[in-house]
Computed example of a mutant assay.
Amino acid sequence: MTEQELKTLTDEALIEKGKKAKTYAIINAVMIGVFVGVAIFSTYKKGMGFFTVFPLFFVFILLKSGQEYKVIERELKERNPR
């Protein structure tokens, strides 16, 4: 979601989106931990291979998708600077 679309939302809708984004951020953090753990375990057991690189690819995707949470948080702070 772009910043322009966020500016058109009402305060209540933005707060609701912020709650959902926070939940997704926690889920992403857990998934990133699992993928990194699988990559480390795979490297330890069998050395570098497919199961080392493949989970790290998903970590990259999850990190990119987590940018929306930061944009929503920034917009919330701009509207209510407490």
Rank of each mutant, 00 (worst) to 15 (best):
S65K: 11
T2A: 03
V59M: 02
L6D: 01
K17A: 14
Y69A: 15
F60H: 06
T52Q: 05
K7N: 07
A13Y: 02
N28R: 15
Y24D: 12
G18S: 15
I72S: 06
M48G: 05
K77H: 08
A13G: 06
G47I: 02
I32V: 15
Q67D: 14
K20A: 13
L62P: 06
L62N: 08
L76F: 03
M1Y: 03
Q4T: 12
F51I: 05
V36H: 00
K70E: 11
G47K: 04
D11M: 08
L56T: 04
N80A: 11
T43C: 07
V53R: 05
F58E: 06
A39M: 00
L63Y: 11
L6C: 03
A39P: 00
S65Q: 14
F41V: 08
L56Q: 02
F60S: 10
E73A: 11
K19Y: 14
I27C: 02
T43H: 08
K64N: 14
L56M: 15
K64I: 14
N80I: 07
T2F: 01
V34T: 10
V71F: 10
E78I: 08
L6K: 03
T2R: 06
L14P: 07
M1E: 07
M1G: 07
E12F: 11
I26W: 13
G37C: 00
P81H: 05
S65R: 10
I27L: 12
K17I: 07
E75N: 03
V36K: 00
F57E: 04
I15L: 13
K70V: 13
Q4I: 09
F41T: 11
K70F: 11
I26T: 08
